[in-house]
Structures are given as C-alpha cells and as structure tokens.
Amino acid sequence: MNVILTSLIILTALAVLLAVMIFYVSKKFFIQEDPRYDEVEAALPGANCGGCGYPGCRGFAVACVDADTLEHLNCPVGGAETMKVVGEILGKEATAKAPMVAVVRCGGTCEHRPRMNDYDGVEHCFIAHNLYSGETGCSWGCLGFGDCELACDFGAIKINPETKMPEIDEEKCTACGACVRACPKMLIELRKIGPKSRRIYVNCRNKEKGAIAKKSCSTACIGCNKCVTTCPHKAITMGENLAFIHDDKCKLCRKCVEVCPTNAIVELNFPPRKTLTATEKTE
C-alpha cells in the first residue's frame, strides 16, 4: 500500500512539474506570427509541389500574405478557385489565370518512329540523353524512360507500356511544371486547358528540315507552312522548321489539323468530325 502511495505521489509531482515547465516554455518562446499565414496555408492544396515557385505551400502562403497584390502569385494546383479563397482571406483581388495543363509534344510511337538501336543502360531519360540522341532516328523526340513520371507528385503522368510514351491524365494534372523541368528533351509544355478541355497543338519538337524529320518519324512536323497559311486567326508561327500554335490566339477551328500532311497537329477532346460541321455553321 505504502509503495503504491509513494509512487503515486512522486509521479503526480513529476507530472505537475513538467506541465508547469511546458506551459512556461511555450509562453516564453512563443513567436508572434501573422495568423493569416496559417489560414492561407490551410486553404492551399498542401501538395508542397513547388509549382508556384516558392518552397512549399507555407512559403507560398507567406508570399501571398506579404505581397501587396496577388497579381503575380498563382497556385497552379488549386487554380482560380483556390486563389479566390486566398483572396477572400486576405481581402485582396485574385486575378483569375487561365487553368493550364501539361502536354507532351511528341507523337513518336513505335509505328511512327522505328527503333534504330537498343539502349542497354540505366532506364533514366537524363542518363540516356547525356549519352546519345536516343533509340530512334529522331534526336528531339521522347526517350520514354519516364523521368516525367518520376517527377510528377500527382500521378498524372504515366508511361504507356505499349507505346513507351508518356500520357497525361488531365483530371490529375495540376500544371505544377515539375515534368516540364524534368524532361531533358524539353518536350513537355504547359498549355491552356481550353473550353471543354479542347486543345490543338503541334505534337512534335523536331527542328530538322522536312525530309530528314520525315525520315526519322512519319508524324514529325516537316515545316511545310501549310498550317500557317491556312490558319484564319494567325495563331500559328513557324520557326526552325517547326510550327507552333499560340494558345491565346487559337480559336480551335481545327483547319490546321485537316491540312497537316503528317498528322503532326493533334486535337484533343473534340467531338467527332461529322457533328462538327453543324457547330461550325452556327459559329
């Protein structure tokens, strides 16, 4: 009995003593912080992807609170909605930015781009890129070892085991830009999602002259200028034998897709052609 009593007393005394110490320390060393940091951080997605250019979500929250306007700040993951919430918390105007999504600008699947040699090293794009131009004749195209897949924190990019090409899951892609930085061939680009996710882009980065490009890949952009002359909105420019569609000018009329001789221009999420004629008329 006595033993139980003494130990109870000692433990209770110890508990009280420690509690007092903890209380004192937490008061003494309390750092007065802007409470809005926490509020903003809570509103952010919490992925810490760094897509905004700040070290993690906390860093971005601090930047938001300290900034005068939210003009140059954007959370690519949360998009306009999150920025609106952040704006409400801080009483600042959040400028809506068009939501973006990553696209891989290479269409060189096995059928289009025959393999010329077998790579027998570490399956890592950067290592292969440092060594040589790649398994195919196209030195600009996708290597297919999945550095982008590794870089993506959201599981939005996957290498298709059949084509050995990366595919992007639009639902999951947050346009944080990690894959853009990871790709040694600089094939991945952030583009506007577009109305109803409809997008048109040149699915190639090959800057070779037409004949050489065509030889290495049957769906390469050959720089024939047809799309540039066809485009009614002057949204396409040609540089170094490679067409580029500016997504801010593109009106998604799809005329370029039709004229491209190598099918290097692709359209995404459009309804099939036949129904289009009707909508086109109404436009």
Partner: peptide, 11 residues
C-alpha cells in the same frame, strides 16, 4: 550501373 549515375550527378 555506378558510373551511369555518377555521370548524371557529375553533370
């Protein structure tokens, strides 16, 4: 593949 990775790191 020690050297493959070391080259990657070195560059």
């Amino acid at each position: 593949p020690l050297l493959d990775y070391i080259r990657y790191g070195k560059s």
